[in-house]
Each structure stands twice: as structure tokens, then as C-alpha cells.
């Protein structure tokens, strides 16, 4: 069920947007910074209509800019399916509308924030701006959101229902969410919150400019795990852990919340190359999309930047396994491979 990454785009807490470098310089948060905010590009460049741009909230701008940039960089290949993923959607607009209900005692409310609060707002806006009347889905399932979107895209490509699919994972941090998570003790054990918008233009047919190949993915619940998921996933791809050159881990930094991932990591053969990505993007529901962005770049640039904290050695980078975990609940595995030219 493989597909090819024609182009990709990332707005993240790191300088990842519209650049040819791959994490050569990174923003390292201090120990007491509990939240990694995205570095926002000059939105005027991507979203030209001033009125539209003004109405868009932070998360919509991030998502739309990342999506448009991804499509533009693919030499004008328009998607025939647009699939977005978000854990919490347009939180700021949701809160704004809730606040207006209270402030105005339910009377004469401005509908704009309500309209923009729906989870499919970004997907709808991207369709409007690209004028794509095609398949348009939004997945909203915690740490399975981006995974569902990617699985859907890969099935559509294999079925021939689409030739080019735009897939993205988007989430934002708001002050209210931050305070609620603080009360829940989210980062007491070392995790940091994060945000970002990663988009991928995926194709069923290879071209000479593809970044990497996504071979397969699988999701499982930590609560139902028997510890054999990675082995059986690799087995379904005709591989064993020996065939993997680098394992890219989505550790949040909270050992309790990473328990399933960490326990599998213990079983890795000595010297197997490992790297991590979540300290760069923070923890959020669709953070795995940043992991996939990193994995694809590892294959493209054939080098592991120090920012990903590599341990161990690899002969070359042909196959990367991404293991992500969200709150020790949603676990996901992605296999990406280098494209031979």
C-alpha cells in the first residue's frame, strides 16, 4: 500500500517552513518553558487576501499556509483528495464563541467564531482556496488522527480513487488549554506541550523529485498491547528490526506516558540507531506528523542532525521506523523508505 511523498511542508516550533535546511539550527527551549509555540511565517506570502487572513485564527492560518505551501512546491499538482487531522481543532474559535455566549447572555452573537470552530474548517478553507471540489475528510481521534488520515490516503491511492492526496496534521496550543493541562499535571514529569501544521502531498506514482516513500503504517491501543505489535508490523512488511536503519521515537519526556514505547525500546538490539523528535515539536495529538516529516527528511538528506539526539550507528539510511505514542494510549508505527534513483 505504499505511496510517494511528492512534497511536504511544516510549520513547527523549529525553523522548518520554506527552508532547504533540515534542523541544522534549532530552538532549544529552556527547562522551565513548558510549551513550544510554532514559529509563524509571514502569512501574507501564502494567504494573500487580507480580509480572509484577518478572520482566520492562529490554527487556521498555520494549517492553510502549510497546506498551500505544500501544494505550491509540487509544481502545481492539485490534490484530488484533501484529508486533514486534528486532535482539538480550532480551539481558539471554540473558546471565543463560548465566551461570547457568556458575555452576551446568548443574545446577538456573531457567528464567525462558531463557523470557524468546526473541526473541518481548515480542510474546507484549503478546498475553497485551491478550488478543489474533491474528497474532503477531517479525522479527530487523539493520537490516531493523523494516522487515520494517512491510512485513508494510502487506501485511496491504492484503489485508484485518487492520484494525489493532500494530508495534514494540525493542532494549536491556547492559553486556556495550557492552564487546563497544567491543572491536570501534564508536564510534571517532563513533557512539553507543542503545536504545528505538517502537510504532505502524496502520490500513487513516483516522480524524480519525490522526498521519500511511505510503505506502511499501523495503530494500536497501549491498553490492548501485548508487546508484539512492532514485530508483527515489520513482519507484515516482510522485514525484521535488522532491516531498519534508524528508529525515530516520539517520546514525550514523561516516562509514565511513554511506558509502552519505552518498554519496546528496551528490546532494541544494542547499537541500533535511535533518534527522537518530540523535544523539538512538543507533545500534541498530531505530533506524529512532525515525526513523519523528520523521517522523510532523514531519507532525503541521508544524515541524522544532532538536533534529533541520535544514538548508535547506521551504515546508511534506507528504512526508518517511526514509533509514536500519545499519552500512553494511542500508539502508531510508520515505515518510510528511501527512493532509489
Amino acid at each position: 500500500m505504499k505511496c510517494y511523498i511528492r512534497n511536504m511542508s511544516a510549520i513547527s516550533p523549529q525553523p522548518t517552513f520554506a527552508t532547504d535546511s533540515f534542523l541544522s539550527s534549532v530552538v532549544v527551549p529552556s527547562a522551565d518553558e513548558k510549551c513550544l509555540k510554532a514559529i509563524e511565517p509571514d502569512y501574507k506570502v501564502c494567504i494573500k487576501e487580507a480580509g480572509l487572513r484577518r478572520r482566520m485564527s492562529h490554527v487556521i492560518k498555520m494549517g492553510v499556509a502549510s497546506a498551500l505551501n505544500c501544494v505550491e512546491g509540487a509544481n502545481g499538482t492539485l490534490p484530488d483528495a484533501i484529508i486533514t487531522a486534528t486532535g482539538l481543532g480550532c480551539l481558539a474559535d471554540t473558546e471565543k464563541f463560548l465566551q461570547s455566549i457568556i458575555d452576551n447572555d446568548e443574545r446577538l452573537l456573531n457567528p464567525t467564531s462558531f463557523i470557524q470552530s468546526t473541526f473541518n474548517t481548515i480542510g474546507g478553507q484549503v478546498a475553497l482556496l485551491l478550488k478543489c471540489p474533491c474528497y474532503n475528510f477531517t479525522y479527530v481521534h487523539r493520537g490516531f488522527s493523523f494516522e487515520s488520515a494517512l491510512l485513508d490516503a494510502m487506501m485511496q491511492l491504492e484503489d485508484g480513487d485518487a492520484s494525489n492526496v493532500l494530508v495534514g496534521g494540525i493542532d494549536e496550543v491556547t492559553d486556556t488549554e495550557f492552564r487546563v493541562m497544567e491543572r491536570m499535571g501534564f508536564w510534571r514529569s517532563g513533557a512539553k506541550m507543542g503545536e504545528g501544521a505538517q502537510f504532505f502531498l502524496l502520490s500513487s506514482q513516483p516522480t524524480s523529485q519525490d522526498v521519500a516513500q511511505i510503505t506502511s503504517l499501523r495503530t494500536f491501543l497501549a491498553s490492548a498491547s501485548d508487546g508484539t505489535e512492532v514485530e508483527s508490523f515489520l513482519d507484515s512488511c516482510g522485514l525484521t528490526i535488522k532491516d531498519i536503519d534508524c528508529v525515530l521515537l516520539g517520546e514525550s519526556g514523561d516516562a509514565k506516558m511513554d511506558a509502552t514505547l519505552l518498554s519496546w525500546k528496551e528490546s532494541l538490539p544494542a547499537g541500533k540507531m535511535q533518534a527522537t523528535f518530540k523535544h523539538l515539536c512538543g507533545e500534541y495529538q498530531t505530533a506524529s506528523s512532525f515525526g513523519v516529516w523528520c523521517a522523510a527528511n532523514l531519507l532525503r538528506y541521508q544524515t541524522v542532525p544532532d538536533a534529533l539526539c541520535p544514538v548508535g550507528k547506521a551504515e546508511g539510511l534506507r528504512r526508518i521506523l517511526v514509533f509514536n505514542s500519545y499519552r500512553n494510549n494511542n500508539c502508531s508505527l510508520f515505515l518510510l523508505e528511501k527512493i532509489d534513483r
Binding site: 468546526t118 477531517t138 479525522y139 490516531f144 495503530t219
Partner: peptide
């Protein structure tokens, strides 16, 4: 139910 789980929100 412990198999594949997903949620969609398209209004």
C-alpha cells in the same frame, strides 16, 4: 472493542 478506532468530524 480493541481493534482499529477512529473518529471523523466533518460537521
Amino acid at each position: 472493542i480493541h481493534g482499529f478506532l477512529s473518529t471523523i468530524s466533518t460537521a
